[in-house]
Computed example of a mutant assay.
Amino acid sequence: MRLIQQDYGEVVGRDRRNLSPALNLFYGLALAEALIFLMEKAYWSWRISFCKLLEKVSRECDLGEVSIRRFFYDTYSKCIEGSVFDGLKMNLVTFAEELLVSELRDEQLIGVRVLHKLATIDRFSLDTLRKIGSSTRTIERLVEMLNWKNTGEEEEIRMRAAEIVSTLAEKRRNVLRVAAIPGAMEALSSLLVVDDSSDFNLLGLSILEKLASDHEDCWKIGNTRDLLPKIIDLTSASKTLLRNDHAAESQIRTVMSSLQVLKKLVSTTGYIGQILRQEVSEIVFTVSNIREILQRGESHMVLQSWESRS
């Protein structure tokens, strides 16, 4: 209204020649900002409602509509509450990392699902793993989740966190970062459950095998309480299993994976290798488990041939 009326009041004792242009500029900029905001809101409302933008992104990324919708509105809120630059800093990885450290289980679940999906899709995995690997806070949170219980949503969170860590550990630089997290070996030990052929065993052994490629990490594995005995216990294969042509693949893979980890540990060179070989030999079931596979594993020649090569 002031722009139309040009009514800026009386100015006493001052030169008002520049007052009108200055206020016109001020109110003009304010009006332009409001119009841009309204146009932006209308544009995104059109894209979301009419063009079904969120549904399209959800299909292309396979992240689920709930996750995508939450990401969009979180980003939009940052733009409104702060500035557009706050929104520009947001991406799906940073969004997931923020949810990962939330205290709410449903938010943690969304966060770990998004990270897991991005880390396992070829199109996004390289950038995603690089960003995760450069964030100590995120790695610490993922390792912490490995200790959670297998109840309700925690089981899925724990499983996906283990899969992310396993994928992350495929790069040597990330192996060092994972192993450097306090309590990492204890968390991995918690994944190993003897007499259980669950995927947690396979994931735990997979991560340990990757960590065992590093000399210092082998030492940490050997020094972690109960971890080495657990690995050796998982090499145990009963007579029934060894003679069963139709044994569950997960059981055979668990035995194979534990043998691979054990082989890497005892193959370590230098003083650390000497200590590890001594510790392994002192565990009473080491030799008996291997002997059982060699003597009775005719139905699973892959185990026998692997042992022979070892």
Rank of each mutant, 00 (worst) to 15 (best):
A30D: 08
S267W: 09
R160Q: 04
A119V: 03
K56F: 15
K131A: 14
I36Y: 12
N174T: 04
L54V: 06
L25M: 07
L188S: 05
A237T: 01
K239E: 10
Y271T: 11
F26Q: 07
L259N: 01
N201P: 00
Q108I: 01
R105T: 10
A161T: 00
L129Q: 01
I4Q: 12
N150F: 07
G133C: 05
L227W: 02
Q260R: 10
G87K: 06
T94R: 12
I132L: 04
A247G: 00
R69Q: 15
V84S: 12
I164R: 00
L146W: 00
E55H: 01
I36L: 14
L262E: 06
F72D: 09
L29G: 05
F50N: 13
K52P: 04
L242F: 09
M301L: 14
V112R: 06
V66E: 15
A169S: 15
N223R: 15
V12C: 11
D7P: 01
D106L: 12
F37G: 10
V284E: 15
S258M: 07
E209A: 04
K220I: 13
N91V: 08
T254Q: 02
W306E: 11
T268E: 11
R137L: 14
L205W: 05
T138E: 05
N150R: 08
I80G: 07
T136A: 13
L202V: 01
I181C: 07
A22S: 12
I80S: 14
E65S: 09
F85S: 11
R105K: 13
E216F: 12
V178R: 04
L3F: 09
V194F: 12
L205Q: 02
S20T: 15
L242G: 05
A42H: 11
N244T: 05
K171D: 00
